[in-house]
């Protein structure tokens, strides 16, 4: 009896920091935001509860257009990241030798060694009108005058992919790492072509990693702020920018909170839709990944 209590206490103490973290950093802020979002301002220091903020959001096309644009771009970034990340992950897990593997992995980590801000400025140095790429093209004579590569969607997409590709590679490497090479060889031995082996054996095996990577990448992209603003400039139209605007520039916390809730709900919906469309489920991913 005493021992059981002691065990329970140990478990309680062990879970305490985690529970506190969840409560203080995730649950409470979201409750606060949810609370703010259903509070309508009807006069100075006068509030009442109602869905007014949400109605405002829906009735203003620029808001939900920005949201749709953010989601579409994030899906695009996720898909491109998958296409870039999967071969890299496959190479690291299955082709590279034991020794070069650690080095390659570290190489993937490099983008995370510098802060978001410095990284974005790195891209600016490369891509701006007077930047390295433009200068190089002029030097080779391919173009006659300076070219601006910044402040367009391509720059934003490239910058975002560079930032998040690691989060695609790591889960895929870890699932592929657990895959017995004999499975691939058996795939060939039984008559499969390269394409068949990839499609019917490697990808299904890596699916939990792929799903996990895609969810993380999509969420990170949709919620990112610095990269789209700095590389996309004023016309980047990223939804997080709208949220920032409401909170900081307009000092309209109610509306900012509403946008926050909408972003969370909408990205969750996109993830759910993605899982449904590809016939995957989250339980599978968590269990295997």
């Amino acid at each position: 009896m005493v021992q059981k209590d002691a065990q329970r206490l140990a478990l309680f103490l062990l879970l305490m920091p985690f529970a506190l973290w969840i409560l203080l950093l995730i649950v409470l802020p979201h409750l606060g935001i949810g609370y703010l979002s259903i509070r309508e301002k009807i006069g100075p220091r006068q509030y009442e509860f109602g869905p007014g903020n949400y109605i405002d959001f829906i009735s203003e096309p620029i808001y939900w257009n920005t949201l749709l644009r953010t989601a579409t771009m994030s899906v695009l970034v996720t898909v491109l990241t998958l296409f870039i990340g999967f071969p890299v992950a496959y190479y690291i897990a299955k082709v590279a030798g034991r020794r070069s593997r650690a080095g390659l992995f570290l190489l993937c980590l490099i983008p995370l060694w510098v802060s978001d801000l410095v990284r974005a400025f790195g891209w600016i140095v490369l891509l701006r009108e007077t930047g390295v790429v433009s200068g190089f093209l002029q030097w080779t004579g391919l173009v006659s005058g300076p070219v601006e590569f910044l402040y367009n969607d391509a720059a934003v997409v490239i910058g975002l992919i560079y930032t998040v590709v690691l989060f695609m590679i790591v889960p895929i490497v870890s699932t592929l790492d657990g895959m017995d090479d004999a499975l691939i060889e058996a795939g060939y031995n039984l008559g499969g072509s390269r394409w068949t082996v990839l499609r019917r054996i490697v990808i299904p095996y890596a699916m939990p990693g792929i799903v996990a990577g895609c969810i993380v990448v999509f969420m990170l992209t949709a919620g990112s702020y610095l990269t789209p603003i700095l590389l996309g400039g004023k016309n980047s139209m990223w939804f997080t920018e709208q949220i920032y605007d409401q909170f900081i520039t307009r000092y309209n916390w109610e509306s900012g909170a509403t946008f926050g809730v909408v972003l969370l709900a909408f990205t969750s919906f996109v993830v759910w839709l993605g899982l449904k469309l590809t016939g995957q489920n989250l339980a599978n991913t968590v269990a295997k990944g």
Partner: peptide
């Protein structure tokens, strides 16, 4: 390997 009519049972079977 995929064109040889030799099939192999692997040490750990390698069932998919």
């Amino acid at each position: 390997p995929n064109r040889r009519n030799v099939k192999m049972v692997f040490q750990h079977l390698a069932l998919f």
